[in-house]
Computed example of a mutant assay.
Amino acid sequence: MKKIFLLLSIVSVFGLTACSNDDDRVDQDTFPETFETKPITFLENTPGVSQVVIPLVPKILASDVVLVYRLSGVNNLGNDIWEPIPTSYDLPQGRLNYNFDFSVDDVVVYLNTNFSFSLRPDFTASQIFKIALVPGFVAKDLKSNDYNVVMSALENAKVKGNIKIETIK
């Protein structure tokens, strides 16, 4: 009986040491990614209202967070300036708002104004957006209004390598 107990004890010790604790592993299902759209022109189907649907391929996880930035210009050094959405402008022609929502399938960017789009093509035509897909565990303490802070946080997360930047087709 003692020999059987000793044999079971030895097998148990080896069996338990072969198990691994993967609590510290990196989640390989979710990875940070940014997409830069081609220029988008908002069409005014209803006065002052338009939306653009941008599909997410592949779909994201329900726990992921999506952040959207609009290319608002270029600084003195020639670097792009990205402003966070939602954002609003009080222009001489009236008020203009960019907003967005997202699901696991797509991102929808909305443009609302109280004036005709034709009065401000600098805000309605050839707009470029950058969409950042952020894993939920990275986004929980993230200040998303600063594009550079978001990109640094994604890089520091070291989730599945470097950030991948693609143009959505």
Results as ranks from 00 to 15, higher is better:
Gly161Glu: 11
Asp122Pro: 02
Val104Asn: 07
Ser152Lys: 11
Ser103Phe: 10
Asp122Asn: 12
Asp106Val: 00
Arg95Trp: 02
Val68Gln: 02
Asn79Phe: 07
Val107Ala: 11
Gly78Met: 15
Leu71Phe: 04
Leu133Cys: 07
Ala157Gln: 06
Lys160Gln: 14
Leu142Gly: 08
Val108Gln: 13
Phe102Thr: 02
Gly73Asp: 12
Val159Gly: 07
Ile81Tyr: 02
Pro121Asp: 08
Asp90Gln: 14
Arg70Gln: 12
Asn75Gln: 03
Gly78Ile: 03
Tyr147Leu: 01
Pro86Gln: 12
Asn76Phe: 04
Ile131Trp: 10
Ile131Met: 01
Ala132Val: 13
Ser72Cys: 04
Arg120Phe: 10
Asp101Pro: 00
Ala132Glu: 06
Ala132Met: 10
Trp82Asp: 00
Tyr69Gly: 04
Pro92Trp: 08
Asn97Leu: 08
Ser118Thr: 12
Ser72Ile: 13
Pro121Thr: 06
Gly73Thr: 07
Glu83Ile: 07
Asn79Glu: 15
Leu61Lys: 15
Asn75Tyr: 10
Leu91Ala: 06
Arg95Asn: 08
Gly136Gln: 11
Thr113Glu: 11
Leu61Pro: 00
Ser126Tyr: 15
Pro92Asp: 10
Ala139Leu: 05
Asn148Glu: 13
Asp101Cys: 01
Asn148His: 06
Leu77His: 05
Gly136Trp: 13
Arg95Val: 01
Val134Cys: 15
Asn148Thr: 12
Asp64His: 05
Phe137Gln: 08
Val104Arg: 11
Asn99Tyr: 13
Ser116Cys: 03
Asn112Pro: 00
Tyr98Arg: 01
Gly136Thr: 12
Asp105Glu: 15
